[in-house]
Write a protein that binds this DNA or RNA. Structure first.
Lengths: 322, 322
DNA sequence: ATGAAAGCGCTAACAA
DNA sequence: TTGTTAGCGCTTTCAT
């Protein structure tokens, strides 16, 4: 059974092929009787328009390319979930590719999106990567969860989130803090600065440093153990971890090392911090997803005509636990 | 800057457009000098073939449609992750849609895949749904993690996984068991049958039943509380939960109700059971993903010519913890 | 080895 | 209101 095309439908309905096209596209000036006849044939034979041909002819594919570093971060998954839902509601399909934190892979994935004539691209960028090339993209691009200079972006300010955490802890009476994470992390900078503006200076010794590519629970464990092997304890009443998984590893190692006077704060408010009853910083991910999609869509539809990149910034929420 | 096509490349290289096509497709009988000239132009202008046009002309899109119920289950995410990786390695793109446990949504998603001329479909089916229609699909379809009659499938036997759990518990000395989950769940049937073959009969009262659409932690909590409100304790030394999340809810409620002589076993060996130190049944998901993709691909490439559906069954692994 | 011509399935301009 | 024609960007005969 060969695939049925407009041509066959036309023949069966005794009309020309463009007339079938008009019926499909709800062109108003087609005779109701003919329309019915065509629709009957369509239903009878189960005809469905070839989207690829439509894409070639029109200049829109109704496909959005979604690129993210991985599927390890619950935030990314949540975004994917939300975007899929909105795409479906707007008759879009999504093509998904993972950059796996490799700029080369990401580049090639994005090129592939373009080759496939996607109408727009939603990207969760790789950290510390250069995205200058995105400015010259032939289709709208939107960055979610991180701001990209010159590119439409929807995210929280990680710096402000760090400040927020600091303020909450300061207000709870903490005057001596530590951090666990990567160098030059905005939220850590914000955290330190938040305390600083309360007159509390960061003690550089209170930094459990992770190497840039540390990402697994085991990586974190190793780094924390390294720290503890040279410090034996930590001179702080609270510590901010770059993410919940790291916070959990801290919790376990602090417990086994009898460090129990240091409150741990995670980041991202995932199931981990919820289950572990650890305070965490929450990103309003539904809001970010929703507005990301809408902004991207309005760019695609040229409803949003602002020349410059639009940055939508949301506030993080401190979730007090434990 | 209009999008550049083969035609322009041809003009710039002073050759005909089909010659450019031959260069792109590595046709051996094109003069090396001309080939070089064309390739130079291609690089210079950054020409990339329009995949949509290729798809229309060829009869292959190099797209695989992936349909799954949701992104809540870590197994699904892991499959998505693995499939994306293999797709990329084989120059395929993936289109992702979520059925959200709604057969109507699933149907429409799958139709959309066909409209887009996908070369194959990988589906994680909705439980207890009718998939007779898949047998008539115009492209290869493969079901992952669940067996579908008449459809290529790659999964564990959930029944055998239940038996496996029962045998492990029996060998640890358990002679009195309970279950938490849905009616007619294969793994529960297997679990009961596993004990039965050791001469231990199921006490129907030891069944914490969930309604079919229970899926959130809160749903589970409610159902368990319901049970406990009418039973106050549970007369069993071990209990199998349908999934890890449910096992975790059991753990918390058992603790708060001072039920501490009942070992809890989860299912799926997710982060939850790992973090909570709960025994669980592990599906070899990398293996399932890998072989799913390979089988689907060999069907697409018509390398696998077996007429009947192929079912690849893997063994689950009991992970002893706690 | 290369070009001319046809056509994949569709939409849109034009005529009638 | 409908049919004829052209063309989206590409691949593949068929001649040369």
């Amino acid at each position: 059974m060969a695939k049925i095309t407009m041509k066959e439908v036309a023949k069966l309905a005794g009309v020309s092929q463009p007339t079938v096209s008009r019926v499909i596209n709800n062109n108003p000036k087609v005779d109701p009787k003919i329309k019915k006849r065509v629709l009957d044939v369509i239903n009878e034979v189960g005809y469905r328009p070839n989207k690829t041909a439509q894409t070639l002819k029109n200049t829109t594919s109704k496909i959005i390319g979604v690129s993210m570093p991985n599927l390890k971060n619950p935030y990314y998954i949540s975004i994917l979930d939300n975007i899929e839902s909105q795409a479906r509601a707007n008759n879009y399909n999504i093509m998904v590719s993972l950059s796996r934190n490799n700029p080369k892979t990401e580049q090639s994935n994005l090129s592939s999106f373009l080759d496939r004539q996607v109408d727009g691209v939603m990207i969760i960028p790789i950290q510390n990567n250069d995205y200058e090339f995105l400015k010259k993209f032939p289709v709208p691009v939107l960055s979610a969860t991180w701001f990209l200079e010159g590119i439409d972006s929807v995210a929280i300010s990680h710096y402000n989130a760090g400040v927020l955490a600091a303020e909450n802890l300061y207000n709870s009476g903490h005057t001596n803090f530590a951090v666990a994470g990567y160098l030059h992390d905005e939220k850590i900078d914000g955290f330190i600065s938040g305390f600083y503006s309360k007159g509390i200076t960061f003690n550089n010794d209170n930094f459990i440093e992770m190497s840039k590519n540390a990402s697994t629970p085991y990586d974190y464990k190793r780094a924390i153990e390294d720290y503890l092997s040279t410090h034996e304890t930590i001179d702080a009443s609270c510590i901010l971890a770059t993410n919940d998984q790291m916070a959990f590893e801290l919790k376990k190692l602090f417990e086994s090392n009898n460090i129990n006077n240091c409150e741990i704060i995670g980041f991202d408010d995932t199931d981990i911090s919820r289950n572990q009853n650890i305070s965490s910083v929450h990103q309003p991910i539904e809001e970010i997803s929703k507005n990301s999609f809408e902004l991207l869509l309005s760019r695609i539809n040229k409803e949003e005509t602002k020349e410059d990149a639009i940055h939508l910034e949301y506030d993080a929420v401190f979730i007090k636990r434990g």
